[in-house]
Each structure stands twice: as structure tokens, then as C-alpha cells.
Computed example of a mutant assay.
Amino acid sequence: MTKRTKKRAYRLSARAESQAETRRRIVDATVELHEKLGPAHTPMSAIAERAGVTRLTLYRHFPDEAAILAACTSHWSALHPFPAAALWEGIADPATRAAAALAAHYDYYAGTRRMWFITYRDVGLVKPIQPLVAQVDAYLTGVAESLAAAFRAKGNVLRQLTVTLRHALAYATWLSLEERGLDTRGKAALVSQWLEGVRNKHA
């Protein structure tokens, strides 16, 4: 490799690093503003100002609101992933397994409540959020179906167990129980009673 080639490679590398750093600043600024104000109240101009870049630079990296929301969500989700299924999948008793999964999700909501509150508040106002929320809904539905299946129930009992668990896993349910003063253990215990009621009703 000649000196000229080395210099050119160095310049390209430095430029790529600079662009990556700019992109990170923009994403970090977006996360901060979304968590503080919400997507519906965060104009692109505010993101550019917080990140210390021009609007032209902002749009060069993220051409529209959907693109920056996707990057913001990806970054935030990587920092705050949903609980790993390994926390409960190894538990044989289905009721204990469900309680463990619920507790893990309730602790997760407790640590990330501000962003979830903002997200669900603004989902009807900011269209690009809707497919992202739909992905979360699909994930929670999958968890509920898996937990319900462990009870080895059939027909209407299985359906009611699944519906109960899906309701229990929702952020809105966590928030409602949180506002009524229940801690994680209390929330999970209450849902366990719901599940037991479904099973006893059809015993």
C-alpha cells in the first residue's frame, strides 16, 4: 500500500468514525427528548439542536420521522431488552412459571416506566410508532400463549388463561396495579389468583 493510499484510507476511516459519532449523538438526543417530552412533542428541529447539528445534517442521516424513530427504538431496546425467557422457562410448575414471568415483566416496567408511558400516550398521535407498538404487542401475546400452554388446558379454559395472561402482561395493567400500591410480588400474586379462578371454574 502506497503512502497516498494509506492517507486516503485514513481519511475515509476518520470520516466514517465522525459520521458514526454524529449519528450516535442524534439518536441519543432523540431518546432523551422522547423520554422527556414524547415523540408527539419533539420536532426534528429540537433533535438537531439537542444533538448540536444542523437540520441538514440531521436529515442526511435520518430522512424522515419514521427513520429516526426506528433508530431510536432500536437503540433504546438494545439498552432495555425485555426479560429473557430463560428466567421462567425452566420452571416446571405452570403457575410458578407464570408468576416468575409476570414478576420479571413487572420489574422491567418499573425500571422503564417513563418511556412506556410516553409511548402509549403518543401512539395515536405519531403514526410511525404504531408498527413498533404492534411488535411489542405481538411479543407479549407470544409470551402469554406460551405461559398458558404450559397449563395443558384445552378449549375455552386455554383461551381464558391466555386472555388473562395477556391482560396481565400489558404495561397498562402493570400501571393500574402500581397506582393501587401493589409491589411486584403483590401484582404477581393477584394474577395468580385470577388464573386459579379460571382453572377452578372449569375443574
Rank of each mutant, 00 (worst) to 15 (best):
F117E: 10
K7H: 12
A110F: 04
I26E: 00
H41Y: 13
S18K: 14
G186C: 05
Y120M: 02
L175D: 01
A110T: 08
Y108L: 03
L56R: 15
A78H: 11
L102Y: 04
Q19I: 12
H75A: 09
R199G: 09
G142C: 06
A78D: 09
G111H: 07
H80K: 08
R97N: 07
P63Q: 10
A172G: 11
H61C: 01
L79P: 08
M1T: 13
G181H: 07
Y109P: 02
R24H: 12
G38M: 02
L140I: 06
A9T: 11
A168H: 01
D137G: 09
F82M: 03
F117H: 13
A134Y: 10
Q135L: 11
Y139K: 09
D137N: 09
A189N: 08
L125Q: 05
Y106A: 02
K201Q: 15
S192V: 15
L165T: 04
I91A: 03
V163H: 15
Q193A: 14
S74K: 10
A172R: 13
S74T: 09
T54F: 14
H105K: 08
A71S: 02
R23G: 02
V126A: 05
L33E: 00
Y108H: 04
A188D: 04
T173F: 14
K36W: 11
L177T: 06
L158T: 12
A138T: 04
K3V: 12
L37N: 13
S13G: 13
E49R: 15
R159I: 13
W174T: 00
P81E: 01
P63V: 07
V198N: 01
T22P: 09
L147H: 00
V198E: 04
S13I: 13
A84I: 07
A168M: 06
V136C: 05
P39L: 05
A40S: 05
A203D: 10
A95G: 12
Q130W: 09
S18I: 12
F82I: 04
D122P: 03
T2K: 09
R60S: 08
L37R: 14
L58D: 02
S192H: 10
Q19K: 12
T162N: 00
A144M: 00
A98K: 03
R113N: 11
P39Y: 05
W194A: 03
V27F: 04
R11E: 11
G52P: 06
S192A: 14
A46M: 10
A46C: 10
T22E: 10
A138R: 12
S45I: 14
V133F: 02
